[in-house]
Amino acid sequence: MSDQEKTSEAEGMTYPCRFRVRAMGLDEDDFDALVVEIIRRHCPDIHEGAVSIRPSKNGKYISVSVDIEARSREHLDAIYDDLTAHDRVLMRL
């Protein structure tokens, strides 16, 4: 078993795999487009239907989910780092 396979098993995931990245922010301007643009830097082949948007109960916030093909834990970490670095992203899951 390779070191990469051991790492994948230890994390509970086997790469590559389908993964849903979610970011939340204020429901204003083009937050959904911003999230997709950040994720697309790492996953240029986001397919149609991969993005879903859900407003909060009171409409102040929005959750944007994007289904991607995660290549590795490092790949996911890079996506989450970029999302976290943006001041309009309040939370990422």
Rank of each mutant, 00 (worst) to 15 (best):
M1R: 08
S2R: 06
D3G: 05
D3I: 08
E5F: 05
E5S: 09
K6C: 02
K6F: 04
E9W: 12
E9H: 12
A10S: 14
A10F: 13
M13A: 09
M13V: 15
T14Y: 09
P16V: 09
P16F: 11
C17Q: 13
R18D: 14
R18S: 13
R18C: 04
F19G: 01
F19V: 01
R20W: 01
V21K: 01
A23Q: 07
M24F: 05
M24L: 13
M24K: 07
G25D: 10
L26R: 13
D27L: 08
D27G: 06
E28P: 01
D29W: 09
D29S: 13
D30G: 05
F31C: 04
F31R: 05
A33Q: 15
L34S: 01
V35R: 01
V35M: 05
V35I: 15
V35D: 01
V36A: 05
E37P: 00
E37R: 15
E37K: 15
I39S: 00
I39L: 01
R40F: 03
R41C: 04
R41D: 03
R41T: 06
H42R: 11
C43I: 07
D45R: 12
H47D: 10
H47Y: 06
E48V: 12
G49L: 11
A50M: 06
S52I: 10
I53S: 11
I53R: 15
I53N: 06
R54W: 03
R54Q: 11
R54F: 03
R54A: 11
R54E: 11
P55K: 14
N58I: 07
N58W: 02
G59E: 07
Y61N: 10
Y61V: 03
S63Y: 03
S63P: 04
V64T: 07
D67M: 12
I68H: 02
E69D: 13
E69R: 10
A70M: 10
R71M: 11
R71T: 12
R71W: 07
R71L: 13
E74I: 05
H75M: 08
H75L: 07
L76F: 05
L76G: 01
D77K: 11
D77N: 14
I79Q: 00
L83V: 08
L83M: 07
T84W: 05
H86G: 03
H86M: 07
D87K: 12
R88M: 08
R88N: 05
V89I: 14
V89G: 01
V89M: 06
R92Y: 11
L93G: 08
